[in-house]
Computed example of a mutant assay.
Amino acid sequence: MQIKSIAVFCGSKAGANPLYTQHAEQLGLLLAEKSIQLIYGGGNKGLMASIANAVLQKEGKVTGIMPEILAQWEHQHDGITELIIVDNMHTRKKMIYEKCDAAVVLAGGFGTLDELFEILTWNQLSIHNKHIFILNTDGFYTHLIAHMQKLFADGFLYESLESRMTILNEPAELVRFLN
C-alpha cells in the first residue's frame, strides 16, 4: 500500500529534551519532501506545532483535527491547510485514523499514549490495518516497549509487537517504509 497520509501523535508540549523538537521538525520536513500529508491533532504548541510548521515550511499539506474543548488549550493552528473542529476526543481520534494510511508516535504525554494504545487496540481487533511506527527519540519509549514485549511474552497479546509496530530511532529511518 502506498502511504499518502500519516497520522502523527505527539505532545502539545515540547518536552525537556531539545532532540524531541528536532526529530519532530525532521519528520515534518521528510513528510513534505515525500508529498505525504500530515494528519494530526491541530495544535499550535509543543511538538504538534513543530511538526506542522516543518511540513508547512516545505509547502506540504497539513490537516488538523481538534475537539472544541481543546481549541483553547492547544491553541488551534490557523495556518494549516485544513483545520477540522469536532465535538469530542472520540470523534477526533476516529477521524484521524480514517484519514491516515499509517501512524507515527512521537514523544508525548497521556494523550499521546492514549492515541498509541487505541490505534494498537483497533489494529489488533482488525478495525483497521494501518502500520504503526514509534519514534523512540533518545530512548523515550524504551521502557514502554519493554513492557509491551512482556505483555506478549506473558501471553496477553495475540501476536508479537513487530507484526503491528516498527520502532524507529531517527526520523530518516521511516523512508524505507514509505513506498
Rank of each mutant, 00 (worst) to 15 (best):
I134P: 12
A14F: 08
A71K: 09
H147M: 09
T121L: 15
I132P: 03
V8I: 09
L113D: 05
A172K: 10
T166Y: 13
A24C: 13
L178A: 06
D101H: 05
S126C: 14
A49P: 00
Q72C: 02
M89S: 15
A146Y: 11
K45A: 11
M48F: 08
N129E: 09
G64M: 11
N179C: 04
Q22S: 05
W73G: 09
A153S: 15
H23S: 01
I39H: 12
N179F: 08
G60S: 10
S126E: 10
L151P: 03
S50F: 06
K130Y: 00
E74T: 02
I39R: 07
K130N: 04
A103S: 10
E118N: 07
S50I: 14
F156D: 14
Y20I: 02
I39W: 14
G108T: 01
A107G: 03
T137N: 12
H77E: 07
A71V: 11
I69L: 12
E82I: 00
Y97A: 15
Y141F: 15
E98C: 04
H131N: 04
E82G: 04
Q26N: 08
E98G: 09
G108F: 08
Q76N: 05
M89E: 10
H90G: 09
I132V: 13
W73S: 11
L47R: 03
A52D: 07
I39E: 15
H147C: 12
L178N: 05
G108C: 08
K94I: 08
K130V: 00
G11Y: 08
G111C: 07
I69M: 07
I134S: 03
L31E: 07
L47F: 10
L70E: 02
G15Y: 11
T121S: 12
D87Y: 06
N44E: 15
L38W: 15
F152I: 13
E33T: 12
I39N: 01
K150T: 11
Q149C: 13
G108L: 07
